[in-house]
Write a protein that binds this DNA or RNA. Structure first.
Length: 409
DNA sequence: CTAGACGCCGGCTACTGTCC
DNA sequence: GGACAGTAGCCGGCGTCTAG
């Protein structure tokens, strides 16, 4: 049955009547008539729950022509205990706006007004909590300074009882001096308990337990299999992945596939800041990360650099063998940490490489013995040859024009 | 000093979705 | 259909803070 037809002919649903009322307020009822009506009914406009009146009407009703406005909309989900901000992590600010010019009102008594931050249900039906049962942590009362104030100190309370997912709005209203400044209300956003934050959103470091990775459940079958092979940390896992992916897949068993594994590694890498190392054998240098991921190679004499994607298969396999050797021999090799500032500041040649070696920048490559039980794959295509998406997602892609990499040769 | 409130951390369970 | 991970919701342990 068509509900629209039904409501037109019979009883009108509440939401429909609300919409009609709002339309009426916005377009039909002249503002002056409404003001007169409120006066005749002895209704104090300041006592009216302003958020129940359409915002445009509020602005017209407002004699001072001022409104509060959030700098940006809150983008959910917002997790309990974490500061409120937009999706990009920008702080949430509140401004006093002159409606006629749309500029921030930075002078006068109103520019120093005291403002209260409240939590509203999505549908504006009610404010949530009183002083004691407020969902807000942090002082909900703030004072404007030159017409602006940051409200990023506010978060939603995190208690032992987890908060159910709910859709809310933030509202800011002036509590002193009360002169009818229009309230600011955000668009609705979801608030969730921090305990329900997925693994994908949590930070990650190399020393974290391997079950912090996506698709590896703590004490789950994958975790148990990895523990049996002494793959305990994120670093162990990633090193196995980059030096011998086939072996890692074998360890994980038939329920792990390449797609899932790549996705997990990709996601982990996006949250890690991997250091880069260089290892040299005769005329060739390989650049790789803490976890054995080949970034690129460089021919020392010619000075030519190639990123991983630019390498032909045979050279990829050869470079991977060099990375494995660097891992096998641990600190006995020439392995240079590339993150030294000196590399970013103008070293562009062989001297730079020698400089770093001479000034104690020689670093042991993380040696977790993965490479020691690698099959000898010389001139066979290595395990991550076909995972261009992994390197494609690199925040610091190896490229001949990259200053910090070029400087090694 | 102590009891209670509060917040953080993490475990457990049920349900759901995905993949083989 | 079975195996598995992810998600949501609930709960307990423990540390810290604060008022009495």
């Amino acid at each position: 049955m068509d509900l629209g037809e039904h409501s037109a002919n019979n009883s009108v649903p509440v939401s429909s009547s609300c919409r009609k009322l709002r339309k009426f307020f916005n377009a039909v009822l002249p503002i002056v008539r409404l003001q007169k009506l409120m006066k005749r009914l002895c209704v104090d406009p300041a006592a009216v729950e302003i958020s129940t009146i359409p915002r445009k009407l509020q602005e017209k009703l407002n004699p001072e022509n001022l409104k509060l406005q959030f700098s940006n909309n809150v983008r959910g989900p917002i997790y309990t205990g974490l500061p409120i901000g937009d999706q990009e992590g920008n702080p949430l600010d509140l401004h006093l706006i002159d409606c006629s010019s749309q500029n921030i009102m930075n002078c006068g008594a109103e520019a120093s007004a005291k403002v209260e931050i409240l939590v509203l249900e999505k549908d504006f039906t009610r404010y949530i909590g009183g002083e004691k049962s407020s969902l807000i942590r942090g002082n909900p009362q703030v004072s404007l300074k030159n017409g602006s104030v940051s409200v990023s100190h506010i978060s939603f309370k995190h208690t032992r009882n987890s908060l159910k997912k709910r859709e809310l709005r933030l509202c800011a209203r002036v509590v002193y001096p009360i002169n009818g400044i229009v309230e600011a209300v955000t668009k609705p956003f979801f608030v969730k308990d921090r305990r329900s934050m997925g693994k994908s959103l949590k930070p990650l470091i190399l020393d974290d337990q391997v079950w912090k990775l996506q698709t590896i459940r703590k004490d789950g079958p994958f975790h148990n299999r990895l523990m049996n092979e002494n793959i305990e940390t994120v670093q162990d896992f990633l090193t196995h992945y980059f030096l011998n992916r086939e072996n890692l897949l074998r360890i994980l068993g038939r329920h792990m596939n390449v797609k899932k594994l790549d996705a997990a590694v990709n996601q982990a890498k996006s949250k890690l800041e991997l250091k880069r190392y260089v290892y040299r054998q005769e005329n060739l240098r390989v650049v790789f990360t803490d976890v054995g991921e080949l970034i690129g190679v460089q021919f020392c004499k010619e000075g030519h650099s190639f990123s991983f994607q630019q390498l032909v298969q045979e050279l990829k396999a050869f470079a991977m063998e060099m990375v494995k050797i660097a891992f096998q021999n641990g600190s006995q090799n020439f392995k240079v940490l590339l993150d030294d500032d000196s590399f970013y500041n103008g070293f562009t040649s062989e001297e730079a490489y020698n400089y770093v070696i001479d000034t104690q920048q020689r670093q042991p490559v993380p040696n977790n013995n993965v490479a020691n039980y690698m099959p000898n794959t010389s001139l066979t295509v290595n395990n991550y040859d076909n995972i261009s998406q992994i390197n494609g997602a690199l925040p610091h892609q190896f490229h001949p024009d990259d200053n910090d990499i070029v400087s090694i040769g």
